[in-house]
Write a protein that binds this DNA or RNA. Structure first.
Length: 309
DNA sequence: CGTTCAACCTGGGCGC
DNA sequence: TGCGCCCAGGTTGAAC
């Protein structure tokens, strides 16, 4: 579920927990599945109770809570709680959809001004999400530059061209690679390529140089717009903001989830195909492969003149 | 290098 | 009504 815009919206909704002191933390029903929670729940609790939330930041599709404890920071370095929502995880400061799927409950000491949240929850229906307590080195290993490329809100054409220009992969599959650009998921990959007029099956190495500039421009603009709309909520029990409201960007989706609908630009039918075991939605009329004739009405100038041989 | 598959999980929807 | 199957916003590791 949550891609960059949804996780960024969650992060913004957690502003009220910054500066709060952690009084308790529990991990009900967190599975023993390897990697879902590290280290053991009791160890995390022992190590973070008493700490203050210094900041809540986002790294790609993760929420990262920076924990501080006075001079201990200078002595031991910082401590980070990295939460990865995966498909169905939510960060909430209000009551959860069900008690059953609450995976973490962090309680704060009283204080703060006005209506400050009493607690921070991680709710995750499918339970694929992960919670990890990390030091500086661990954080770098999990979401440092080795794992994450430039963030989708600031990526530029040169970033993408450097990483993907020579790749044989289909451009849609490549955009899901977090090492190339961090934060794009299945919904936004489809929407970005539709707005670029590029066929998702196009091999990266066949795209003309200026395509990377266009993809980067559209990526930044589309993700920023999606953040402004507080992300995309599809169906019930789906993504919600930290105070349990639905996002609004799903109304702007042009291809994702629209198989068989008429394209808003050309009227042709939206197709659904499978790439790398994931659904891809696109408009074959508006989205062209380079070197295969004129681009559709939505775009000009993206089609390469070079033959595909 | 790139692709494919299986796993990790729960639950909604659909065809029979 | 019930059963079985497919599908879902993500990621990882093994096999080919």
């Amino acid at each position: 579920m949550p891609e960059l815009p949804e996780v960024e919206t969650m992060r913004r909704g957690l502003a009220g927990v910054v500066g709060r002191r952690i009084a308790s933390v529990e991990f009900p029903r967190s599975r023993v599945r390897p990697l879902s929670i590290e280290p053991a729940a009791a160890t995390i609790a022992r190590r973070i109770v008493g700490h203050t939330v210094a900041a809540v930041v986002r790294r790609g599709k993760r929420i990262v809570i920076e924990l501080a404890r006075g001079e201990a920071v200078a002595r031991c370095g910082r401590l980070w709680l990295a939460i990865e929502p995966r498909m169905t995880g939510l960060m909430l400061v209000v009551d959860p959809p069900t008690e059953e799927h609450v995976r973490m409950v962090m309680g704060f000491t009283k204080g703060g001004r006005g209506a400050q949240p009493q607690r921070l929850l991680f709710w995750d229906r499918r339970g694929l999400g992960t919670i990890r307590l990390l030091d500086d080195r661990g954080l770098d290993a999990v979401c440092g530059p080795h794992k994450h490329g430039p963030d989708g809100l600031v990526v530029n054409g040169a970033d993408l061209a450097d990483r993907l220009r020579a790749s044989r992969r289909a451009v849609k599959v490549a955009l899901l690679d977090q090492r190339a650009v961090a934060g794009i998921g299945n919904i936004y990959a489809a929407e970005i390529l539709f707005r670029c007029g590029i066929d998702p099956r196009s091999p990266c190495r066949r795209l003309p140089r200026d395509a990377w500039e266009r993809i980067a421009d559209v990526t930044r603009a589309l993700l920023a717009e999606a953040v402004a709309h507080e992300g995309s909520s599809i169906g019930d029990e789906t993504y919600r903001t930290a105070d349990n409201r639905v996002g609004r960007f799903q109304r702007q989706h042009r291809v994702y989830g629209h198989e068989g609908d008429a394209c808003t630009a050309c009227g042709g039918a939206i197709l659904r195909i499978v790439q790398a075991q994931r659904a891809t939605f696109f408009c074959p009329g508006c989205q062209r492969r380079p070197g295969r004739g004129a681009a559709g009405s939505a775009r000009r100038g993206l089609a390469s003149r070079r033959p595909t041989t």
